[in-house]
Nucleic acid binder design. Sequence first.
DNA 1: TTGAAAGCGCTAACAT
DNA 2: ATGTTAGCGCTTTCAA
Lengths: 339, 339
Amino acid sequence: MGQKKISIREIAKLSGVSVATVSRVINNNGRFSEETRQRVLNVIHEQGYETNAIAKGLRMQKTNTIGIVVPDLNNSFFSDLVEKIESQFFTAGYSTIICDTARDAHKESIYLKMLESKLVDGIVVISGLSEFDSKQLSRRIPIVCIDRKPNAKDIFFIGSNHYKGAKLATEELIKSGTNPVILMGSRESTSSRDRLKGFKDTLIENGLNFDSGSIFQLTNQQDETIDGRRTAIRQLLRNKMMSGISPLGIFAVSDTLAADILFAAHSLYVSIPNDLKVIGFDDSPIARYCYPELTTIHQDTDTIAQDASTYLISAIQGDKVHTDSVKLVDVSLVKRNTV
Amino acid sequence: MGQKKISIREIAKLSGVSVATVSRVINNNGRFSEETRQRVLNVIHEQGYETNAIAKGLRMQKTNTIGIVVPDLNNSFFSDLVEKIESQFFTAGYSTIICDTARDAHKESIYLKMLESKLVDGIVVISGLSEFDSKQLSRRIPIVCIDRKPNAKDIFFIGSNHYKGAKLATEELIKSGTNPVILMGSRESTSSRDRLKGFKDTLIENGLNFDSGSIFQLTNQQDETIDGRRTAIRQLLRNKMMSGISPLGIFAVSDTLAADILFAAHSLYVSIPNDLKVIGFDDSPIARYCYPELTTIHQDTDTIAQDASTYLISAIQGDKVHTDSVKLVDVSLVKRNTV
DNA sequence: TTGAAAGCGCTAACAT
DNA sequence: ATGTTAGCGCTTTCAA
């Protein structure tokens, strides 16, 4: 299938020069007369010639391609990040191979091999369940980890200041007169651990108790479906309400979880923010579609994407990168209507 | 940067055979003794050798890679589709290059060139503003268009039956006692035109008037931000309500738009579904986070992804594909709480 | 069963 | 200013 694409060789023949000259013209390096330049460019244009990136990549050992490894494109925080990162690299002349691992370690490792095999110039790793093991790669490819701790000290790490985010949320909940509870999903991650710690420390700093009642973690099974989550949350709400706690404050570790809380609350006729106050995390689009609109912690994905790609590009170009190998991006509290 | 990866050549040397033999062993084709097989495989394993996909691609003129061109990964309908398509291809041994065009025709054309240049074996084009112009490609690459009419008859087209979806929604709205209005975003597309037509035809079939009052289309400016949309919609709602129409029925051309309607309605204290009935389109995650949960038209992304990839793979393998070059996937009405 | 060698399309070092 | 040529790592005839 497909008529062969024309190669640099025919261009050379048609314009009566050597392949080397054509190559020079294309890449605008080396010397050639203005006249040949025109001639070659004309032929290229009229033949619709496009350079073969595979051949070039093989020859140069550089593909101008970077890989992005992401757990789940359906998660809007991730898709937002990916879109922004991609856009940065596009502008810088790189193309990107996006790999959705579906949170599957095996798939991830296959993808990593594939990226290496395709000679990508760099890799962006976003989140993930465990530490990122750089020994999976046999070549030494520049890597940046976002929200995922690498196991090697020479890999650049960047992510939101989840600890601070949790602190802001928790403080706000306390200020508004509640003794907050944290709601966590079933999945562990670098970031969720930081958030938990921020929550706990803030409780303690404010002279409140942190005990088994302060933390509510969904089981795998509960977390599997929307309905599972909502049922579990409704249960939680009922328990807390029945025991007379009011207002109740919940720090949800993600906006979707927070949205599920609001939903469960509606079905129980508890009034928000009077009887129940909730704060989410991410400031994802859904926060503005919740009813009432969700108070949440904003993650600065612009900066994360920006810094991650800037770093990676300089690492690829072999610049000595003087920055620290870890960067925490600031977060902020977005007040809307659930507190 | 990066120590060189080991090549087939060193493997050959280390196992005392020729490169040809190593290649045969790796690809398990041609003949070789069991003994050499073992020897070579051992060396490969202990050296952590991985084949260089770039070199292989150049030689074979086949990269086992397909490109996916998508307007916007942040749109959950698209990200859902992409994820499913990707998963299909992954299983079939293909890797995918995902290209987010940000709805920019120029970016799209650059991406198409890039994909061609990287010798992808096939391309999936998802949605987009205008017809897909296959003349952008100079090689003849197998292509499948999803929700995007191609300008050539030999390109496979697949998409939801948007016309039927609109019909279902409109009928439901009429049955529930309203004289429905359609709410459209500012962007034109193959699918939105079909939906509009379905809406219009259904109105007429039911003896209702279709006039300028039946259709409310957001301007570019209004459609730019959430707040712009909500303000415009609030205006619409107020007008309709003031003129005494109740209940009012709105068919929103997407779930997000429907969600914005619900929001505007809340701020106006109109009661759903008593005074206002709305149906969305897509059955995207947000439909279950709206309050009340959104009645909507379900698109069967599983089937779309499945069929699109199956088709493309056989086209790549050069099978004569006997199916029609266009396939409409069935849709269904999901009744929830806004009608 | 195995090896030698050509060649995929390109760039770069070396000639001229 | 331009041409010749080697070689990136691989597969695949053709020979042995």
